[in-house]
């Protein structure tokens, strides 16, 4: 198995508070790697360091062997690392379909293309791909609605669609089921399982243990900015250190 993403010795401090300390993590191709940990453990900070939103104080983030530190967010996107945000980051004034067309155009057009004289109506390929993904997400009957008017759960699925339409090498999911009703959560798990079968590598940050144990091949536990354990779901379940730090001694 080859390593897609390799995080080496990453430190990040915010005004004296150490958010991340000496993080080392390898993400294997085709695997779903979950990062769990209590609130404030540094999970979102770690993702932000990967996609260029934050620059770590030390260390490297190598994606397919190339250091991503200091690269522009749009270049990281085109390298094949795509993030789905925790609070839905969509285009609220655009329609649901347009929201998914935009990342489709990004994938095809690159960081800039002046296609001001081609008609949207002639972009059949991009549209077909978007429709296909929206169908998978169960949003097909809402495509003409404005995205801002959707329910929170639907917005989250729309964001997932926006990530998937770019067919990334590595998908970073920040709590993909937060704010979803139980049946929506199950539906999202099924969806993510299908994606996994297609061989897409994923990092998932999640609070919901049901989601983590249904999807993850490997789990890393983050507590107070440090990785205290990495292993298979079974190893993590049985790890006393994890139960102590993260679950307060409760049985998983």
């Amino acid at each position: 198995m080859s390593i897609v993403l390799s995080i080496k010795n990453v430190d990040k401090t915010f005004g004296g508070l150490q958010a991340l300390g000496d993080i080392n993590l390898d993400i294997e191709e085709g695997k779903t790697h979950a990062i769990i940990g209590p609130n404030g453990a540094g999970k979102s900070t770690l993702l932000n360091c990967c996609i260029g939103r934050l620059i770590p104080d030390n260390g490297t983030v190598e994606f397919n062997g190339k250091n991503m530190i200091g690269m522009q967010p749009h270049d990281i996107n085109h390298a094949g690392m795509v993030r789905v945000f925790q609070t839905p980051e969509i285009f609220p004034e655009l329609t649901v379909l347009q929201n998914v067309l935009i990342p489709g155009f990004a994938k095809r057009d690159g960081i800039f293309k002046f296609n001001a004289f081609t008609s949207l109506a002639s972009e059949k390929d991009i549209e077909a791909d978007a429709m296909h993904i929206l169908e998978d997400m169960g949003l097909i009957d809402q495509i003409h609605n404005s995205a801002g008017s959707m329910s929170r759960g639907d917005k989250r699925r729309l964001e997932l669609a926006m990530g998937l339409v770019q067919h990334p090498t590595l998908l970073l999911l920040d709590e993909p089921t937060a704010g979803m009703a139980r049946h929506d959560t199950n539906r999202t798990i099924d969806l993510l399982k299908t994606i996994k079968e297609r061989g897409m590598t994923k990092i998932i940050i999640e609070h919901d243990m049901h989601v983590v144990f249904s999807l993850a091949d490997t789990i890393s536990v983050l507590a107070q900015g440090r990785i205290i354990a990495t292993g298979t779901p079974d190893e993590i379940r049985g790890n006393p250190k994890v139960q102590e730090a993260y679950l307060g001694g409760a049985e998983l």
Partner: peptide
Amino acid sequence: SPFGLKLLAIKSNQTRMRYTGFN
């Protein structure tokens, strides 16, 4: 055009556009 739609998307959420792969 796709260009026009991209401009509208910048108006709607410019930060998101950067993480979507646009300069």
